[in-house]
Simulated scan of single mutants.
Amino acid sequence: MVIVSNTRWLWFATLLFLIISSNFLVYRLDALPPLSTEVALGTLFDFVVIIPILTYFFIIRKRHLLRKIWHVVVAGFTGAWFIMPNDFLYPGKSVGIVLFVYTTIILMIKIMSVSKSFRRNVTDIPTFQQRLEYALSTQFTIKRVIDVITSELAMIYYCFFSWRKKPLANLGSVQVFTFHKKTSAIALYIMLIHALILESVGFHFVLLSWSPTLATIVLVLNLYTLLFFIAELQAIRLCPFIMMDQHLHLQVGLMRQLTVPFDKVSNIKYYQGPEKLSKSIQKESFDGVVADLMKEKPTFEINFEMPVEAKMMYGMKRKVRKAYVRPDNPKQFYDALTEKIHKSDEYMKREND
């Protein structure tokens, strides 16, 4: 991790302000004589060369992070493009073309690396969303962008490209447990899809006579919701609960997922609480019970040694202390998880001894 002192930040911000303000004013002060093409080239040099050099020496200062300068070069060129008036933009067109081509090449290389990493981790990371998130994180560093891209690509995948896929099955030490077969979850989403199609068609023609723009916006939103319902249905069908060697992975459709090591699982017990969870309990728990026509009571309550992070769609996260689940085969799930917890406890004791 690179730590930048306040003094270096102050010097960098001062120099950056002087470069940007001087270039901005030189094009807008009427007192100056007519400017030549060389002035525009000087502005490009300041933004594409000088500012990245200052960024490297004042902020980055690490050889292995030199590749990050490219992001500063692109940002500098974009800034120069906005500062220079239209009459002075043509000297930068050739530079812009070079930057665009180079950016495209770098992006294609990253995409190929992501694809390679995604295919390589099929056995280690069984679910599509987790593999995609891991593959993207090896090439891109902005976590929020990765979360959004993962959510959107997962929705596209489950909606259009997962129909020939079979649900995950037991493989070696990996155990899977379905949670939707004894519910009406699939029927619920099919009903919602049919209702949305009928509502979209009828409502669109009503709005069309009143406001074509609003009708188009509502139609696009309904189509997005339709794709989400289809993807959610497929994700529920194809992604059961998974027990791996060291982790328990709970995923309910596209919306909720939780991965917790077995050494952080305190216990599993049959749920004896009220039919409906209170709001205070909901805030600190992971709801692993699938949506249904009439949502059923959880079968098990899984408690954790400490708060663990549950992930929602688009990267939203929440710390939870327990999870509530309702697997289709409760006894098998209970026995398997209990065995995993005991093995983890024994391993920790041996490590401590």
Rank of each mutant, 00 (worst) to 15 (best):
I341T: 05
T14M: 13
H194T: 04
S285K: 07
V325Q: 12
V290G: 09
T338W: 13
S278Q: 03
I217F: 13
V174N: 03
A291L: 15
Y56S: 04
A235T: 05
V252F: 03
F161Q: 03
I109W: 06
D263I: 10
C159Y: 01
K349H: 15
R131P: 01
G42N: 14
Q139S: 02
F128V: 00
Y90C: 04
R144W: 13
R119S: 05
T213R: 10
D287K: 15
P327V: 07
I3F: 11
M316S: 15
Y271Q: 11
M312D: 15
S22H: 05
I19Y: 08
Y347Q: 14
C159F: 03
L54I: 04
L207M: 06
L10Q: 13
E133M: 03
D46A: 14
I109P: 02
M155G: 02
S117V: 04
M348A: 15
L29D: 11
Y134F: 02
V206K: 04
Y189H: 06
Y270F: 15
L18N: 02
P261W: 07
N303Q: 12
G42F: 15
Q234G: 06
Q282E: 10
F229C: 06
F286S: 12
R256K: 10
F300Q: 09
M255A: 14
I190K: 15
Y90A: 08
K343C: 13
P33Y: 01
V73Y: 04
I83W: 01
F82M: 06
P34R: 02
I268P: 13
T150S: 03
V176Q: 00
V114I: 03
I341W: 07
I236H: 11
S278D: 07
A80K: 07
E38H: 12
K68S: 08
L99V: 05
S344T: 09
L198A: 11
